[in-house]
């Protein structure tokens, strides 16, 4: 029932990697939903499992990865975990497409933009001219001036911001149902970043497309996303809509993350807040809550068993005993 509203519905996803040191439990019991026409942001610091999560969605995990049997990834009503090879081919790049961090490495340097874009449409029975027309229209839509002539240019002839626009155009060529943007502006300057974010806002009006936006930049998440998922060390610690998360954060990790952001500290100060301690070893997990070793609000239940997900209200939930006991 809920699958009809949600483009993507991940239930109880757990992934571990076999390593020389033992089983590294990269993702544990991830639940997340991407509703139709919404932008969902994923925030988390390095080692939180963002990339493993994305790779699991597209079934592009390394060979030493083990996905737990209970895991379900429902995309438009179909379980991605059950898909065969040809279904997956149809999924990647067609129904789910990606925008990467570095636009230079995402484009093939020796093939013209037009050819790369038409190539995406290889499954469609269109003439060459029609495909080029589509490509030009798409380029125009992402704000590349003189788009018809520029089809024959090569990636190095564009600036960094333009290249990222091209990547976005390419990602939208197949009219995907889900767009995954993995830190799409990290390699760009602030002014270009602002332009790309503005473009993405415009595009969401034009294309009926849901988006998973991965970033560590809280400012961008606040500006672009409808809903936010906060990840820490392989778990979703808090999720909810963007207002709840930024104004009524419940999980101590989210609260501390918000306090650390220098952009949110209004008065100038030389001593900046930090989160003491470090991310736990995912091979040797703590017995209780994953955040408890660093948590200033920890109390007895935190050391005994990992907390479940407790609802704060509406769609807002957090993995913290304090929420249950509140």
């Amino acid at each position: 029932m809920s699958t009809s509203e949600n483009v993507l519905d991940v239930r109880d996803l757990s992934v571990s990697f076999n390593t020389a040191r033992g089983s590294l439990r990269a993702l544990r019991h991830i639940d997340l939903k991407v509703p139709q026409n919404k932008i969902v942001g994923i925030v988390g610091e390095s080692g939180c499992g963002k990339s493993t999560l994305i790779n699991s969605l597209l079934r592009l995990l390394a060979p030493n990865a083990v996905v737990d049997d209970n895991s379900e990834i429902i995309f438009e009503g179909e379980d991605v975990m059950e898909m065969g090879k040809s279904d997956l081919q149809g999924l990647r790049g067609q129904r789910i497409s990606m925008i990467f961090q570095d636009p230079m490495t995402a484009l093939n340097p020796v093939i013209s933009i037009g050819a790369q874009m038409s190539d995406i449409l290889y499954r469609q029975k269109l003439t060459k001219a029609q495909k080029r027309e589509r490509a030009a229209a798409m380029l125009a839509q992402v704000g590349i001036p003189d788009s018809v002539r520029r089809l024959d240019d090569y990636p190095h002839q564009f600036s960094g911001g333009m290249r990222q626009r091209i990547c976005i155009a390419m990602a939208l060529m197949m009219n995907p149902s889900l767009l995954i943007a993995d830190e799409p502006t990290t390699a760009l300057d602030v002014t270009l970043e602002a332009q790309i974010i503005h473009l993405m806002k415009e595009l969401r009006e034009d294309f009926e497309c849901s988006m998973l936006f991965v970033s560590h930049n809280l400012g961008l998440i606040a500006e672009l996303c409808d809903e936010v998922i906060v990840m820490y060390a392989g778990e979703v610690v808090e999720q909810g809509n963007v207002h709840d998360l930024f104004h009524r954060a419940q999980h101590p990790y989210t609260q501390m993350l918000l306090e650390c952001d220098p952009a949110r500290i209004s008065e100038t100060r030389k001593d900046l807040p930090t989160i003491s301690g470090s991310v736990p070893d995912l091979v040797d997990l703590p017995q209780g809550c994953i955040f408890s070793p660093r948590c200033p609000k920890r109390y007895e239940p935190c050391n005994e068993s990992p907390p479940g997900t407790f609802e704060v209200g509406g769609q807002h939930s957090a993995r913290c005993f304090k929420v249950r006991d509140a």
Binding site: T191, A194, N217, G219, A222, L258, A263, R264
Partner: peptide
Amino acid sequence: LLAAVPEPDP
């Protein structure tokens, strides 16, 4: 440049 910095407040 200052205007381009995203505001971390929805």
